[in-house]
Design a binder for these strands. Structure first.
Lengths: 194, 194
DNA sequence: AGACGATAAGACATATTGCGTCTCACTGTC
DNA sequence: GACAGTGAGACGCAATATGTCTTATCGTCT
């Protein structure tokens, strides 16, 4: 079921997926889907690991998972990603996910909440790179970061373990930003340190 | 505008595209879109060249475009495509496009009509390959064929010229069937002749 | 400056679709 | 036969899409 929901998201995008799509892809009726999940959004939340990433950022802010090292890595990742924001099918999902838009309850209730949470945490760290008050770009970058997380394989990652979380970022998040020239972009960042 | 509509179809699938999507992708307001086209469906019809392919099959049936050679090529293509129907993002669009489904007016009015037209023409030719009465598979194959046509670049193709049409098929349709081992699949067809 | 055409933004009513719940019939198991 | 699980589909309600309209803005032409 979750794999089917994830496949639907990758195929049609989060904002276009319907409960009927997921049920059909999973080969079950809509009645069965509602027997397994409280609502349609819950299927997507589980499939896209929305609650996992919430916990991910929560633990980062609490310093449980080696926040200093990981946050620096996240900031560097965000800055590197500034080079090119185009060509990402899933980016627009996040960019448009503000209350009052036409994306429906999922994005209104779920994803922007995550972005807000992450923004509060990363804003002071990113500020030296993108400038104060440039929140729109920060939201874009965080969106891409979050989506990278969503699209990663659903293998178990112990987000409470610093090494496991760091390995996860190196494996799934950094490649998603499609480095075009190895470490050259990293070297172009303000501090130059990693 | 047409390029934007086509991009939206490739990104979200025909059944998920809205007028607002196309207008936003084209960078115009919805009011402007309705000034340029009678309705939302007309944009997709033009972008996906629905009327072109109708004329394409019409001319084939009339023998205007070297029907004998081209029809044989089409049949061979259809048979080769039998090997694998999965992994095509746009196939489900056609499979579900029957009157009464939830795909809306576009598919109800447009694509099934084309499939029906093509089926009437190709059915006797395909029969030796897929067997009499196996219309469901025939419809699937034709769907893929039609979609290949839709997704081809919108360069001008003179469908009334046999050589031009043949070159179009070789360039855009045959590659869309993703031959896995060169001509081996073609050699496995009943007659073995091309 | 003033007239003109094209456009963006958005309100509006209508039509369509999606959501969640429900009932019914079918199937396999005990 | 009782039972749990399921598929198909109808139902009311909410959300979205469609197509038209009005208003304000911008650039161009006279």
């Amino acid at each position: 079921m979750l794999d089917a929901a994830k496949a639907c998201c990758e195929r049609w995008g989060i904002e276009k997926v319907t409960v009927d799509d997921i049920a059909a892809a999973a080969g079950v009726s809509r009645a069965t889907l509602y027997r397994l999940f409280p609502g349609g959004k819950d299927v997507l939340f589980d499939a896209l690991r929305v609650r996992d990433i919430e916990e991910f950022f929560t633990r980062l802010t609490a310093g449980v998972a080696g926040a200093d090292t990981l946050s620096e890595l996240l900031v560097r990742t965000v800055v590197v990603a500034t080079t090119d924001l185009r060509g990402d099918d899933h980016l627009a999902i996040m960019l448009a996910s503000e209350p009052g838009d036409t994306l429906g309850q999922l994005t209104v209730q779920g994803l922007p909440r995550i972005i807000r949470m992450a923004s509060l945490f990363l804003a002071p760290l990113v500020e030296p790179y993108v400038g104060r008050g440039d929140s729109s770009r920060l939201v874009e970058l965080l969106s891409r970061l979050v989506i990278s997380y969503f699209l990663a394989p659903s293998d178990h990652v112990d987000l409470g373990d610093a090494e496991s979380a760091r390995q996860f970022i190196s494996t799934y998040i950094l490649p998603a930003f499609e480095f075009t020239s190895g470490t050259s972009l990293i070297a172009a960042s303000p501090t130059g340190a990693l």
